[in-house]
Simulated assay, not measured.
Amino acid sequence: MTFEPERLGQSRSDLAEALRSARKRAGKTQTWLARRCNMSQTKVSNIESGKLTPAMVDIELILEALEATGPEAEKLLSLARTANTEWQDHWSSRRKGLDKKQNELARLEAVSTEFRFFLLSMITGLLATPEYVRASIADVPGDQSKTIARKLERQQVLYDSTKSFTFVLTEQAARWPLLPPIAMAMQMDRLISVSRLPNVRLGVIPLDGHVPERPLNTFTVYDRRLATVETGTGALILRDHRDVTAYRDDFSRYEEYALFGDDCRALLAEWSASFTRPRQ
């Protein structure tokens, strides 16, 4: 299926109408459908009114209950997949204010307990020093002091023992010289410090090994509910369980090539020293 960015996250009403029509063609009531799918009638009503985006498993249950097959089922599954995918472009985020985006992330972090971060080219804000955070949004015009403060506030979630975090960074992500050498050395030290938290696993994939994989994007997986995939101009928000599972599987493969624990810290310390070592 081809995704059209302008349609992503906007097809809930189309899906709601199609589901409502399918149920009526089958001659069934919302109460009957709710009972067959082990849902509340309120949930079925909210799905058919477009107030609630159903998960793919909800759609599969509804299709089975209505005995919908062939082109009709394919259309409903396609609409559901699109409704469960959202596109957030950088320009819209900047117009709304990047501090608003930080609030959205904080809310997502509050309701999630298991986090997986695959960092391909840069260090994420949860792991960044204030200098790195500032440099990462230096190209955004205007006063970004609120955004910087909010990014740093969000780092407190790392100290919540009810949550677990796994970060996998490529060597490029860790060593990309976004800051002057001394500041980059401090950023390496920050990674070492965070790696010692009991609920954090931080690993790096060095470039001197053999990695028969070809990662294309930075991505984050929140529990089993959602995956975000970053591109050069925005981010895809994926809620389809197949997409989320696929990214969890990708993460597991990359994790196998990463160094963790003391091996990771030794490598980060070596990189930290390289930033301050006099050039020959």
Results as ranks from 00 to 15, higher is better:
Ala80Lys: 02
Asp14Gly: 04
Leu197Gln: 10
His90Met: 11
Ala80Gly: 03
Ser164Ala: 11
Asp262Gly: 00
Thr31Tyr: 13
Gln172Tyr: 09
Ile62Ser: 04
Thr2Trp: 01
Ala68Asn: 05
Pro212Glu: 08
Ala174Val: 12
Trp91Ala: 15
Ser93Asn: 15
Asp243Lys: 00
Arg201Ser: 14
Trp176Ser: 08
Thr124Tyr: 09
Glu270Gly: 13
Leu126Asp: 02
Leu267Lys: 07
Leu259Glu: 08
Ala258Glu: 00
Ile137Asn: 04
Gln30Ser: 12
Gly234Lys: 04
Glu72Thr: 08
Ala73His: 09
Pro215His: 03
Ala269Glu: 10
Ser161Gln: 15
Leu33Cys: 01
Val44His: 04
Thr166Cys: 14
Arg94Asn: 06
Arg224Asn: 15
Leu119Met: 14
Thr129Ile: 03
Gln172Cys: 11
Ser145Val: 09
Arg25Met: 06
Val168His: 03
Glu74Thr: 14
Asp189Val: 00
Asn103Trp: 10
Ala65Ile: 11
Met122Phe: 15
Asp240His: 06
Gln144Trp: 03
Ala26His: 08
Thr162Ile: 02
Lys100Gln: 14
Thr233Lys: 02
Ala55Gly: 14
Lys24Leu: 14
Arg225His: 13
Phe275His: 08
Lys51Gly: 12
Ile59Asp: 10
Arg190Val: 01
Ser40Thr: 09
Tyr132Ala: 07
Ala34Met: 07
Ala16Pro: 07
Gly261His: 13
Glu48Ile: 05
Ala110Glu: 14
Arg242Ala: 07
Ala174Phe: 07
Ser161Phe: 12
Ser272Cys: 05
Glu270Ser: 15
Ser13Gln: 15
Ser45Ala: 15
Lys43Ile: 07
Ala227Gly: 03
Glu153Asp: 06
Ile59Ser: 10
Leu126Ser: 08
Pro54Leu: 06
Pro177Glu: 05
Lys43Gln: 13
Val229Gly: 06
Ala138Glu: 11
Thr29Ala: 06
Ser40Trp: 09
Thr233Trp: 05
Lys101Thr: 12
Ser21Glu: 15
Arg107Glu: 15
Gly70Trp: 02
Ile182Thr: 09
Thr113Met: 07
Glu72Arg: 04
Thr233Asn: 08
Ser93Phe: 08
Ala26Gln: 08
Glu74Trp: 09
Lys151Thr: 02
Glu114Gly: 05
Pro180Gly: 06
Ala110Trp: 04
Ala22Pro: 02
Ser145Asp: 11
Asn84Pro: 02
Leu119Asn: 12
Asp189Trp: 00
Ser112His: 05
Thr42Cys: 10
Ser252Gln: 13
Ala80Val: 05
Arg196Glu: 13
Gln30Glu: 12
